[in-house]
Amino acid sequence: MPNVNVLDIKGNKVSSLDLPESLFAVEVNEHTVYEVVKNHLANKRQGTQSAKTRAEVRGGGKKPWRQKGTGRARQGSIRSPQWRGGGVVFAPKPRDYSYTLPKKVKRLALKSVLTTKVLDEELIVLNDLNLDSISTKEAKNVLQAINAKNKAYLVVAEANENVYKSFRNIPNVEVVVVNNMNVYDLVKHDSLVMTEAAINKAEEVFA
C-alpha cells in the first residue's frame, strides 16, 4: 500500500496517508491510456472540415479543347483534380469523429495514470484546500509552497468558488471536482494535487 505525506497549503507536513491500492497501486496498462487519450481527442474534434469534389466546383462544363490533334493530353473539364481551381480527390466532408469506449477500459486507464503519478512522485496530497477569498496571488503562493510543477491539476471533493476563481487565471493550472477527473488532463499535467477528501471520494466513485 503506497504511503504519502499530507501537506497543508503552506507546505508543512501534517500527517501521512495510505493510498487505496485499488486506485494507486494497480498494474499500469499503457495501451489503455493511449486508447482513452485518443478517444478523448477524437470526441473533441468539431468535424467541420469540408472541401469540394469536381462535381461541386463551379464551371468546367465545356471540354477545354478537342480530343485529338492538338498534341496535348486529352482533357474533359478544367475542374478536374489536376487543374488549378479543380475539385479535390476524396474531398473531406463534415463528419462525426466521436466513438465510445467500454467503461472498464476508461477505469483501467484512470487507475493506471494515478498509479504512474505515485510512482513518478508527481502526486501531492493536501489535508484541505480552502481560501478565505478569491486571490490569484494566494493561489500562486500555495503552488509554490507545495512545490507543484508549472502544469498542475488540482482535484477537489466538492466545487469551491474561491478555489476555482483563484486558480483559473494561472496558466496551465486546472481545478476539477473528482467526478470530472479524466485521463487526458491527468497525462497533460505534470503535478497532481489532491485533497484527502478528494482521494476518499475517488475511491468511492472509481474503485
Results as ranks from 00 to 15, higher is better:
residue 80 S to R: 15
residue 49 Q to T: 13
residue 135 S to D: 03
residue 75 Q to K: 15
residue 207 A to F: 00
residue 90 F to Q: 06
residue 43 N to P: 04
residue 183 V to F: 04
residue 137 K to Q: 12
residue 127 N to K: 14
residue 175 V to N: 04
residue 190 D to P: 00
residue 146 I to W: 09
residue 53 T to W: 01
residue 178 V to S: 12
residue 100 T to S: 14
residue 187 V to W: 05
residue 31 H to R: 14
residue 155 V to Y: 04
residue 87 G to R: 06
residue 145 A to R: 09
residue 157 A to V: 01
residue 195 T to L: 06
residue 135 S to G: 02
residue 127 N to T: 07
residue 153 Y to S: 06
residue 174 E to Y: 12
residue 56 E to Q: 08
residue 166 S to N: 04
residue 75 Q to C: 00
residue 196 E to Q: 14
residue 34 Y to W: 08
residue 186 L to K: 09
residue 24 F to T: 06
residue 83 W to A: 07
residue 126 L to V: 02
residue 25 A to R: 06
residue 4 V to C: 10
residue 54 R to F: 02
residue 199 I to F: 07
residue 144 Q to F: 05
residue 79 R to G: 08
residue 93 K to R: 13
residue 120 D to L: 07
residue 67 Q to S: 04
residue 128 D to P: 02
residue 30 E to M: 05
residue 115 T to D: 10
residue 180 N to C: 00
residue 45 R to M: 09
residue 71 G to M: 11
residue 76 G to L: 07
residue 21 E to C: 03
residue 165 K to H: 11
residue 59 G to P: 10
residue 27 E to C: 00
residue 190 D to K: 09
residue 185 D to E: 12
residue 164 Y to D: 05
residue 136 T to W: 08
residue 68 K to Y: 13
residue 119 L to P: 01
residue 27 E to V: 07
residue 108 L to Q: 14
residue 31 H to D: 13
residue 14 V to K: 15
residue 3 N to Q: 13
residue 205 V to M: 15
residue 174 E to G: 06
residue 145 A to P: 03
residue 152 A to Q: 09
residue 35 E to N: 13
residue 96 D to T: 06
residue 111 K to G: 03
residue 19 L to V: 03
residue 55 A to D: 15
residue 113 V to P: 09
residue 13 K to A: 08
residue 64 P to W: 03
residue 204 E to T: 14
residue 31 H to K: 13
residue 136 T to S: 13
residue 101 L to I: 04
residue 160 N to I: 01
residue 154 L to R: 05
residue 124 I to K: 12
residue 142 V to P: 12
residue 170 I to A: 12
residue 42 A to F: 05
residue 178 V to P: 11
residue 130 N to D: 11
residue 190 D to G: 01
residue 95 R to F: 00
residue 98 S to G: 09
